[in-house]
Design a protein around this nucleic acid. Structure first.
Lengths: 239, 239
DNA sequence: ACCTTACGACAACACCGTTGACCTGTTAAG
DNA sequence: CTTAACAGGTCAACGGTGTTGTCGTAAGGT
């Protein structure tokens, strides 16, 4: 097939579908997101999406080269939604904390999409804006460039990775979730101190802590380490 | 179909396949792992696995209810392998660093299994041993119980989350991976300083850093923060 | 030596992504 | 206003996937 996709920008001949729908990149992405949220990630296929749109599946290939392209478009849309409401305050730790929690919450709000897109680089507008903003915060705080990039990378991957992990948990069927809670209560909560002293000693804390996400704790540890590192740099310690 | 799978334990009638192979759960898991290692994660399908085993694809459903069951069996096997070789040395930071890297490497060695099992609690022997060991390291270092549990939780979830995230990247088709590298080089490497000053300033670092996993960096940040916290606790600072 | 039945084989089903060929309504030029 | 080009929707097909209902047969206990 010769290049079937038109450069995205200049589309003029918008012919309606047999069922009367006028397709567009945005409509396709929005419908895909709706499908994912309503019926799960595995419900997203070119054919189902076509059906939901009221169009032939092959029509979508006029807008996206393959399904992967569509995934990237979906991912970028999510990034954009998360970033749109974020503003910097001048306190870099607070800003990054806020952004991390927002990304994590955004992932949990669209679990299936988050699981699909967490590991992709889109190279699209929203993502670029996000990268620029985060690097700006870190460089503004005083991190030298290599350090800023290193911390940016760890920060963003941590947010995405925990977002995907916790999303996967919420996507488990109800019975499986209850079974896991039960494992913590019955199995770990009742191990004898003789064979498993450390688990036995911390059992109440374990049962209480393991049911919720560890992302806030992990995020705070990362930011604390970054702050310490910046203090050392400022004090002229070369390490 | 009524339950086609026999309770796993008591199988007696081991009839050889048309091609002369005697199937078993272990043989299937081992062959699946070999397939994944040799031809990539996407080469694992029930049909291909059947072909590799010299058996009809449908025969595998006598041993696993669905492909997910097979994946979990593979994951269980991997957990065991990772833990078996880990020994504590007395230096808690080095021990946790070693374990984190080992878990991450284990995940990358078998991406599909890692992605499926990262967010599940098994409550089986190997997992329990791992929890006991990690808590032991942290409590032995001097962390009070709530703190030890908090850090354990962040540590293990971070290892699993990054393992799954990076596994997902390696599971991408070759073309998609190259496309991502290209995005960093062409898109991010060429943004004008006028509109994107921070990206432009750090472009070489970005291109160099983003191609590899940020897990080692994130792990070191987490451990650094934990060590700082411990110093504060030892100094009697109550925060 | 027989009977039972576990379990491998087969064929079929309903999906999937992707493509080449076709057809038609929109649009811009004359 | 007419008309010709072509963007873009449609159709049919290919080769893949996971999964299941049915059947035959050989292995094992007796």
């Amino acid at each position: 097939m010769t290049d079937r996709v038109v450069p995205a920008a200049a589309r003029q001949r918008r012919r309606p579908t047999k069922q009367g729908v006028v397709l567009s990149e945005e409509l396709i992405v929005a419908t895909a997101l709706r499908l994912i949220e309503e019926h799960g990630a595995e419900a997203l296929s070119v054919r189902r999406l076509g059906r939901a749109l009221g169009a032939d599946p092959s029509s979508l290939y006029r807008y996206f080269r393959h399904t992967d392209d569509l995934m990237l478009a979906i991912a970028d849309e999510l990034i954009g939604r998360n970033l749109r409401v974020w503003r910097t305050t001048g306190d870099w730790v607070a800003d990054l904390r806020e952004l991390g929690l927002r990304m994590h919450a955004g992932a949990l709000a669209h679990p299936r999409a988050a699981m699909l897109s967490a590991h992709r680089v889109t190279g699209r507008v929203h993502e670029i804006q996000a990268v620029e903003s985060m690097l700006g915060v870190l460089r503004g705080a005083g991190f030298p460039d290599p350090e800023a990039v290193r911390i940016y990378h760890a920060f963003v991957d941590q947010a995405l990775a925990f977002g995907a992990l916790d999303s996967a948990c919420t996507a488990l069927p109800r019975s499986a979730r209850e079974a896991e809670a039960q494992v913590w209560r019955s199995t770990y909560g009742r191990l004898p101190a003789g064979t498993h002293p450390h688990i036995a000693a911390t059992a109440p804390h374990l049962v209480a802590t393991m049911r919720s996400s560890s992302y806030p704790a992990a995020l705070d540890l990362l930011l604390a380490a970054a702050r310490t590192r910046l203090d050392h740099l400022r004090a002229g310690i070369v390490e």
